[in-house]
């Protein structure tokens, strides 16, 4: 359909992938998240769940209840009505995240710096410089998915993923960055760790941020890390 701000295609027999075609990635990101919220709140029959990410949303369906074609038509009409200029969050909260960067060679910081052709200090400067928008919540366990720092080039994923990545590590891959709230296997290079506890299973949702909130990283030393260890991540 010409003029539609999205392309909708099947992702197997039980999901649709809705991808923004808007030239502005910010508008595309807002669009797919507005769509996800709308579909969630409207309780559309046959929709199992919606996973909005950066420029796309995956809509999982129960094929016994609705066909992919019918749902695609419906979503196209919904998208026409959505205002992709409207901010996702009226008042974004800012989370200050202290990071003990990997200057002692325990993790992958040196490897990341070498692959970029820049120094370790420069990697830290580029990573802790910007204020990041939480683009979406990803795996594992509600990881805040962020745009990557302004590195010269995309960061390659590890050739062999780690079987165990501890909670609290700060990592980068491709043009993305994140914090890992819960221990899990992972293939992203790790550049540091925060002493803060991100996950709180007694809260709902169990991570404190949501898409549209802001995250800032701040370099700290070993003493500050030890002093802050176990504190809950909270908005400033």
């Amino acid at each position: 359909m010409s003029g539609s701000p999205v392309v909708i295609s099947a992702s197997g027999n039980t999901a649709l992938r809705v991808v923004s075609t808007l030239p502005d990635p910010e508008a595309g990101w807002r669009l797919v998240h507005h769509l996800a919220r709308f579909v969630d709140e409207a309780l559309v029959p046959g929709v199992v769940c919606v996973i909005p990410t950066y420029d796309a949303a995956l809509v999982e369906i129960d094929p016994a209840e609705v066909s992919l074609e019918r749902l695609a038509d419906y979503l196209r009409r919904v998208v026409e009505e959505l205002d992709h200029d409207r901010p996702l969050t009226e008042r974004p909260r800012t989370f200050d995240v202290p990071v003990l960067y990997d200057t002692e060679g325990e993790l992958d910081l040196a490897m990341v710096a070498a692959a970029q052709g820049i120094g370790i200090d420069e990697v830290i400067r580029l990573h802790s410089g910007p204020t990041y928008v939480v683009r979406c919540l990803g795996s594992p366990g509600g990881s805040p998915m962020l745009d990557g720092p302004a590195f010269p080039r995309p960061v390659p994923r590890l050739a062999s993923p780690r079987a165990h990545v501890p909670q609290g590590v700060v990592s980068v891959a491709g043009r993305q960055a994140t914090i890992t709230p819960a221990a899990a296997p992972g293939g992203w290079p790790l550049i540091g760790r925060t002493p803060l506890t991100v996950l709180d299973l007694a809260a709902e949702p169990f991570v404190p941020y949501e898409p549209g909130d802001l995250i800032r990283f701040r370099a700290i030393g070993r003493d500050a890390y030890e002093a802050l260890l176990g504190d809950r991540m909270a908005a400033r």
Partner: peptide, 9 residues
């Protein structure tokens, strides 16, 4: 490298 996106079961 592809941007992370939802992957179906």
């Amino acid at each position: 490298e592809v941007l992370s996106r939802g992957v179906p079961v």
